[in-house]
Nucleic acid binder design. Sequence first.
DNA 1: TTGAAAGCGCTACCAA
DNA 2: TTGGTAGCGCTTTCAA
Lengths: 340, 340
Amino acid sequence: MKRPTQADVARLAGVSRATVSYVINGRADRSVSITEETRQRVLWAIEQLGYQPHAAAQSLRSGMTKIIGLLIPDMHNPHYWQIVRGVEDAARAEGYDLLLASTSLDPKREQHSVRALLRRRIDGLILLLTFGDRLASEIEMLARRHGPVVLLGGQVPGLDVVEPGYESGAAQMMRYLLSLGHRRIAFIHGVACPTLGGERLTVYRRVLQERGWLNERWVIHCGSTLEDGYQAASHLLDCSPRPTAILVVNDLLAIGALRAVADRGLRVPEDISIAGFDDIEVAAYLTPPLTTVRVDSETLGRESVRLVLARMRDPERPLQHIRVSAQLIVRASTGSAPAD
Amino acid sequence: MKRPTQADVARLAGVSRATVSYVINGRADRSVSITEETRQRVLWAIEQLGYQPHAAAQSLRSGMTKIIGLLIPDMHNPHYWQIVRGVEDAARAEGYDLLLASTSLDPKREQHSVRALLRRRIDGLILLLTFGDRLASEIEMLARRHGPVVLLGGQVPGLDVVEPGYESGAAQMMRYLLSLGHRRIAFIHGVACPTLGGERLTVYRRVLQERGWLNERWVIHCGSTLEDGYQAASHLLDCSPRPTAILVVNDLLAIGALRAVADRGLRVPEDISIAGFDDIEVAAYLTPPLTTVRVDSETLGRESVRLVLARMRDPERPLQHIRVSAQLIVRASTGSAPAD
DNA sequence: TTGAAAGCGCTACCAA
DNA sequence: TTGGTAGCGCTTTCAA
């Protein structure tokens, strides 16, 4: 019970293999023309046998895989999933399948995954790198040889980039928190690699520095799990004086922070304000609903696919750098700074 | 600047293409043996050229793609990601890449995705079907021709199945709620397809029926988004008398329910208890932390991969049906039924 | 309008 | 111990 091949179809339809190929690939319009009757016979034979073209053979011959690869840092963070959704959607709409890999926040694995993805001669690659710097030169080289590679955030010379507008988002957020009267603002920087989310931290530091309110003790570096967020917030809550607001590098960790506050019997936002980044879907449904900076992650994914496809079509087009804007979303987790 | 092929390596190393192949595939041990010196020269040439085997060509020749396909219903629900994590992990550990597709809760798209996946002659396929029944016969047929197909829940004759133990979990949950004195227990069945989560609903009905407390007005069928959960719960809260507990088909929707309760100024669990299924990661960090039924989703994913690989190795092995057990996790969102 | 045939890059069998 | 070589299934050019 072997799977039927193109030759089987040809035999059954009483035509040559080339004809079958023409019919399938719809080349019937331009250079080649096929009798409607022949076409129908071929179609019938295909149906009859349940024939399906062999993807590997097509790839080998045509040089296209019809696959787009996506590398994300961490499957735990919903934010990345929203990106995956955007990518999957856009890719599928164009007839591409999605090969997904995650770094699991491990540099070795990131390197390994990038190589594995590249090895497949996938049509296009979208990389959301965690430890990118270490690989920059290798990626640059490989990208030159392989097809299109688009970076989702970060910087590698010679590559198209889609950049989330966290920087302006962070600035909006800081302005907002200051307008509420907060001065003791903490920052939880829970990421696998210091460079990740760096722009948010930088803006935070700069804004407070300008006012002389920066206190490095209130910048917590920790891991990237919910529990890390919880622990970091717990630590901050035990400080004296306590910060009146905690800005968290992403919503996932902010959820951990909310829990920490609740566990200490404190109220949000009366006793302390909490805010995050990303506007993951649950953010609006938390108790209290979370103030955050929205970066439309599906758009991030979609745009990446767009760039990849565009580069496929025209490898010589000028380098693109697209910025997806961010927007402050005020909900109930932030309020005026409590009087001392 | 074309990519080097095996022939280039052979030329540079001064050996034949076959030798290169042997070196790469480490067949040097058994049937064929290669001088250490030759081996080194080949390795050197590979390094020199930055040669990487062409995956499509390998697939075509060897018949293996080193890819496992996974179809999930919906990228919005964290529960499914946890499964994806398990699959990705296990697959990568065995040298397989992951091709991911999501149904987006659309039957057409499910059918289309299954076909696309099958078409690739992927080494193995893991399906978490939403509308499986409609496709059952097609899948069965295709599975016979194609490689291993494992079902994650559901039933298709002739296929290996990994089944989450929701049924026993639901029974534990109902027993627990009853022990807290609840009699007016509602059920939010927010799924894309009635059969999904059916076992949970069935247990719910059976248990209440036995006591004569079943009230179909308290069974809400709705969609599968957070907002659907919110709306469904809102509706239930407006009933009079109000249910004293709401069991939600999954944690994601339960989050929506928690929000609805909070928005009405009611307290969980004093005024009403809320419980879900899956034990997604955020469940423990919600306010209040959510009582739920844990089904270890990573294990679900891992086991699926295990079955796929086992079936690859031995297509004739007896059909497997693995049940992953469920466990009641009591947290703060459930409490004694309020006195009337 | 259709068919023949040359590979795409690789693996594995057989011969040397 | 190594090399020659026949395909895997498909697309596409060229000829008929």
